[in-house]
């Protein structure tokens, strides 16, 4: 009974502290599909006109929402794929191969991960300009992937560290090359880590705002974050209903991914030590 009552206390405290967030989300949904009376918290008639961006252009100067969504998806998924595949090899090397300067490399990874991106933005801008990748999706994909890599390498190194050496030794004794041992015997053991990293870097790419804003400002490379920014920014009278509806649209994939892949995402914090 005491345990139960303690849980009730927790629930109450959590409810109080998360109420503002929950209320915000509730009104996000309500306001996107209803016309509120001024000054009233009670929604009036249902009105779907805020969602008009789905079937028409909200004004002529802007790209269609579907092009923008496709851009965002391309940006996030390519980044996730790049980060995961590079981390899979780099993490293995750092975990297993006895290369010179390994401790410094590992320390460097942590520093890079902690480094605030925004302080690098001018240098990155100049590099992209020089390479002719400014205002292209490829440019921001490369930049985003590079900035996500330290985290990914570090996480996957941790997963590789839990794979017993003997499995690799056994593979070599069975006649397999090192490459084959890695691909067929070791990689399957870190699958939970690969999967979690794939999802996390996809979500990170999906919500990226600063890099596209600064490095790909053109309308043909717009992603949802910069699209929303533009909608709220340049109208004389801001259309908050429209803004909220696009916000909803933007967050639906994130919510779905979290609901579907919760278990895999938790893996990354468990360190992948499940037997």
């Amino acid at each position: 009974m005491t345990a139960n009552s303690r849980i009730w206390h927790l629930v109450l405290i959590l409810a109080i502290f998360s109420a503002p967030l929950v209320i915000m989300y509730v009104y996000q949904v309500i306001d996107s599909i209803a016309q509120p009376d001024p000054g009233s918290l009670v929604p009036g008639a249902i009105d779907l006109s805020n969602w008009r961006f789905l079937w028409e252009r909200i004004d002529t100067g802007r790209p269609s929402i579907w092009v923008v969504t496709f851009n965002t998806f391309l940006f996030a998924s390519t980044t996730a794929f790049l980060v995961t595949s590079l981390s899979a090899t780099a993490g293995y090397a750092l975990s297993r191969l006895n290369m010179p300067g390994r401790p410094y490399f590992l320390g460097g990874l942590i520093i890079l991960h902690a480094f605030p991106t925004i302080t690098l933005i001018i240098a990155i801008f100049i590099i992209l300009q020089f390479l002719g990748l400014f205002d292209t999706l490829l440019g921001i994909i490369l930049v985003k992937a590079a900035l996500e890599l330290p985290f990914g390498v570090w996480i996957l190194k941790g997963f590789y560290d839990t794979v017993p050496w003997e499995i690799e030794m056994a593979g070599v004794q069975d006649g397999a090359s090192r490459l084959r041992v890695w691909w067929e015997l070791v990689l399957p053991q870190v699958k939970p880590g690969l999967f979690a990293l794939l999802i996390i870097s996809f979500l990170s790419g999906w919500s990226e705002f600063v890099l596209p804003l600064v490095l790909a400002p053109g309308s043909s490379t717009q992603v949802l974050a910069t699209f929303m920014n533009a909608v709220i920014q340049d109208d004389a009278t801001a259309d908050f209903g429209l803004f909220k509806a696009i916000g909803m649209f933007y967050s639906i994939p994130v919510i779905v991914i979290y609901l579907v892949f919760q278990k895999q995402l938790m893996n990354i914090y468990g360190g992948g030590t499940k037997g």
Binding site: P164, E166, A170, V172, Q173, S177, L185, P188
Partner: peptide
Amino acid sequence: QERSVGVVFQNYALY
């Protein structure tokens, strides 16, 4: 790989 040696490890090292 080319030695023709079979090894049984302490923790078996099954895949």
